[in-house]
Write a protein that binds this DNA or RNA. Structure first.
Lengths: 187, 187
DNA sequence: TTTGATAACGAACATTTTGTTCGTTTTTAT
DNA sequence: ATAAAAACGAACAAAATGTTCGTTATCAAA
């Protein structure tokens, strides 16, 4: 990709993120994004069709990154299969979040966080599912597998939201411990 | 409240709900709501400040109803404290949803369902919390109580979403059974 | 270092949406 | 029957959207 394109793309993402920190998504106008990013009106529309499109692309950049990294992680360690190794996927994810790459925390704690959470969960669902099918599970056969998958990824995302809303007082390891406590008993 | 006010309020809510079934919240204009509801522009703005305000009021009407009814339910039965009575609060909630009063299912299955889910969860959190404090719990003291509260209401809401997205194949009793299976082990 | 391609730019534009004002008509509650 | 209040519609300014077009600046590759 052309260096200029990368630059404006980054500028728009950055401006958009900043704006999200101060006002809800619905109140942000394209004009404001343009001004904050210091790009021409035409340029904005050359990159993104609409504001919604911009949001979608930002999410893909954000979560594609994190989930891909977690995917690698699951190749070596299972979901939670091998004892209590701190290298569990969920702990890995939490650490990744804590590093706050691309200001993901800012976005997950802004007024419009639900939008991002939904993207997050959709991506996570795929990851959890891919892990589940590789596991030969014996218990709880009366409960649909995709119910469990949904429960796990849903709970995780809700936990992350709780964590961030409480200003991230806990360490990833602590959180992981909590999460184990509510998930492992049902596996 | 004046009969005329009730009528226009209902007409606007109804029109808004119908529109949500066909397009996402962000793409719905006040003009469309006005046209669908057959009310004057001035009238709309006499009732609601903005589209967001309309959404908020609708949610309050929807969930205030359901949660209040569930609150009554918790006075007789505890959260899940008394064995496996089918009259548990969660089962009650699910039944209430299934009745589809005020087309709540339509709203929870539309493209913009996340918005409603968030309101739902916020209301539910209060309900779960009020039940928790009345319980003298002994186990899992190392896990923060509000983590558990968040986990329970979060999981419930995610389950409801999963249920609706799968076209509500399960009965409320079945769902309640699944939910018990993932929640009771940690209580 | 030239050069052809392409990205960014800004000004201008029609169109849509928003939110408000005001005078009139209709409906309500008493 | 009547006074109060609600609904109405037309008209309006202001703001936001999305597109066009000709110009300028930057890039990548020869």
């Amino acid at each position: 990709m052309d260096r200029r394109q990368k630059k404006t793309r980054a500028a728009i993402f950055s401006a958009f993120s900043s704006l999200l920190a101060e006002k809800p998504y619905s109140k942000i106008t394209v004009q404001e994004i343009i001004d904050a990013a210091n790009v021409g009106r035409t340029t904005f529309y050359a990159h993104f069709e609409t504001k919604d499109d911009l949001l979608k692309e930002l999410c893909e950049e954000l979560f594609g990154h994190i989930i891909a990294s977690a995917m690698d992680c699951t190749h070596t360690h299972g979901l939670y299969s091998d004892g209590n190794a701190p290298e569990s996927v969920f702990c890995h994810l939490l650490q990744h979040l804590q590093e706050n790459d691309k200001n993901i925390i800012g976005l997950l704690s802004c007024e419009s966080s639900e939008i991002f959470l939904r993207y997050f969960k959709d991506n996570l669902n795929g990851l959890v599912e891919s892990q589940f099918v590789n596991q030969n599970r014996t218990t709880n056969t009366h409960i649909p597998q995709n119910f469990l998958i949904n429960h796990i990824s849903g709970s995780f995302v809700e936990m992350v939201l709780w964590w961030i809303k409480g200003h991230m007082k806990q360490t990833p390891a602590e959180l992981d411990c909590y999460f184990r406590a509510v998930i492992e008993p049902i596996l």
